[in-house]
Design a protein around this nucleic acid. Structure first.
Lengths: 366, 366
DNA sequence: CATTCCTATGTTAGCCTTAACAATATGGGG
DNA sequence: CCCCATATTGTTAAGGCTAACATAGGAATG
């Protein structure tokens, strides 16, 4: 903070009110016995000087900063930003401030660096939303043993405190849905492999298919972005491998997949079923409305915070909470109807494409 | 932070290394003269004790916390989350931590509350991304005169430090684009009126139309969400007022608008042109690809931080920086072709709708 | 009326760092 | 061999707050 006309301190207030610092402290923190008269005088002085407590000093004296840290990877993505929203809210309601520290990249080193920065700030605990193997999570937890931590993106069997979404189960739900519709040739577009959650999902998809002696007919990796979903779908189509359904790692990539299929004149769900993951705000309004797996990140954020808070209040045994996502059936999935494509649909595509081109050529590029 | 086996302090390190605290401080902060031998001994002790500096104490002593605050409204929205990403990054690169405080609701009181919480934490400065009138912004700036502040969502003529996107100009770009294509019956779906930026945009749209003696034929308000965009478009259609183009306040609502038009069997851009605002990652891959106004929030966040940092380093005159967004022409806009709707398109809608319904009825709800 | 027990308030000593100043050592010039 | 400049290290006093203990009045009790 910059020096204006000097911020008032407890001592200033005490002086003006003619009482001791401690009394002012008691009034400000509404704890301990203070006579109504004194309280009024103090409050008055607080108002006059526009006193604002100094939480740094308070934290130093109390040995508790009333702040928590959130170490997360790219906060501009859907999941982290939704999580942040839930965490901040829960924290604020409990009187905690939130310090955000982005984990730049993957791996133990990056996470360690981010958490260290938070520890320097004396956060009372940390929430860690970065992909970490079971082993690495344990290592982080050990290395920062004096700072309670709750992980949000680690394998469910990690020996650390964690609040997780049951990715395996969610993925299984998606795969089972396709199976029940009668699909047997299923491809997938998954997220980055170094994302732990994605690994669980791949597993979930695979296991369900395996139960029916099936397997994914093709896989492509994206980076969560719509553009990467598009590229992945294009690659899938280019491979020539026939498939009637695609499991997609998140709804954003699904947008790209939908587009790629559309460009090829493939009808969704007539020719290809597409199922996403997340249920973002736009998913219900895409064309077609996207069948997907719902994940409630803000709520997960709140749960994670309260888990952390419990850890702060009284040490509990390490535990992992798993929240099961749900299947949301919309219009992007249906029974497979191989080889029954309607002729006039292709005609439509051509006409529509033509219209768009006309729209585009009138104005130059970007 | 919880007590584990006690975090090491400067004194502990000093003791172990057999030097004074001050010397350790000098080594840790790499400032002042320290002999190589001593430095080595200290570093060794630091390593052994796994010493981490206490930034609270440091902030108290230095009268500078090396942290900045970000007061923003709903961080789960596109703009705030993108902004956060840019700000955090710039801050981290300059050695600052970021404390996030959500502004719960609209208006001076909410903002004051959020900024006060940040001031308590002794942030060196604040970035404020909440809609505030010119007057209210000045009031906040005055009330927290001792904390340098940069505003991100205030009118461009506000007497405060601000880093803004030129919403007026961006909106004008969009309206001009439609005009140039030949549209005269233009409707709009705008965001919440209490959003300052939205006000500028409405103004931009209006002024451009006024230049041609035109006006918006209809307006609907949304809340930035795709669902609200859908509802707004439905209302627009239900009103019976004919229009050939829609200006939309953000790309997310545009998703809903596209969907509503599609459901009515209206072709975009054949029957109605749609232009969004933001250029989100999915915009280029929607069906049809969305013509929109590009806004680079992460970069704005960085600029805002550096503006704030300049304020910290040396008081400068108050200034406002305006960044001009750009028009991205894609396929959702074209010349108006009133009354030329193709019959078979409606037929297609019916068939497709039927297909989807089939897909849906097989599996129960959510 | 002395004694006990609250209630209301004050005092003192830290929390961990840094700024400012003090002190000691080192080395070269006269 | 003394003196001064420089390099290196140490000492002391904050910074704003709270925990823990100390003290002074009363009211209640016997």
């Amino acid at each position: 903070m910059k020096t204006g006309e000097k911020t008032a301190t407890l001592a200033d207030v005490a002086h003006l009110a003619g009482v001791s610092q401690q009394t002012v402290s008691r009034v400000v923190n509404t704890q301990g016995q203070v006579s109504a008269r004194t309280r009024a005088r103090v409050m008055d002085a607080v108002g006059q000087l526009n006193y604002v407590p100094n939480r740094l000093a308070q934290g130093l004296a109390r040995q508790r900063s009333q702040s928590i840290g959130f170490a997360t990877n790219d906060i501009s993505l859907h999941a982290p930003s939704q999580l942040t929203s839930g965490i901040e809210r829960a924290a604020r309601e409990s009187g905690f401030s939130l310090i955000v520290s982005i984990v730049p990249g993957y791996g133990l080193a990056s996470v360690t660096q981010a958490v260290r920065a938070l520890k320097e700030r004396q956060v009372d605990g940390v929430l860690i939303n970065a992909s970490l193997s079971s082993k690495d999570a344990a290592e982080v937890s050990r290395r920062f043993a004096d700072v309670p931590s709750v992980f949000l993106d680690v394998p469910p069997d990690s020996p650390v405190n964690a609040a997780l979404l049951d990715q395996y189960h969610g993925a299984a739900l998606a795969a089972r849905h396709l199976l029940e519709l009668g699909h047997t040739r299923i491809a997938c577009v998954h997220g980055p492999q170094n994302a732990v959650a994605e690994h669980s999902r791949l597993q979930g998809w695979g296991d369900v298919l395996k139960d029916r002696s099936l397997a994914l007919v093709a896989q492509q990796e994206g980076d969560w972005s719509p553009a990467s979903g598009y590229a992945a779908a294009v690659a899938l189509l280019a491979s020539g491998i026939p498939f009637t359904a695609v499991l997609v790692g998140n709804d954003q990539m699904a947008v790209g997949v939908l587009r790629a299929l559309w460009e090829r004149g493939l009808n969704v769900p007539g020719d290809v079923s597409v199922i996403g993951y997340d249920d973002t705000a736009e998913s219900a309004l895409l064309i077609p409305p996207l069948t997907t797996i719902r994940q409630d990140f803000p709520t997960l954020g709140q749960k994670a915070f309260h888990h952390l808070k419990a850890l702060l209040d009284g040490p509990e045994p390490t535990r992992v909470t798993l929240t099961r996502p749900g299947l949301v059936v919309r219009a992007s999935t249906a029974r497979p109807r191989l080889g029954q494509r309607l002729q006039w649909q292709e005609a439509l595509q051509v006409v529509q494409q033509h219209l768009w081109n006309r729209g585009t050529e009138e104005q130059g590029g970007e």
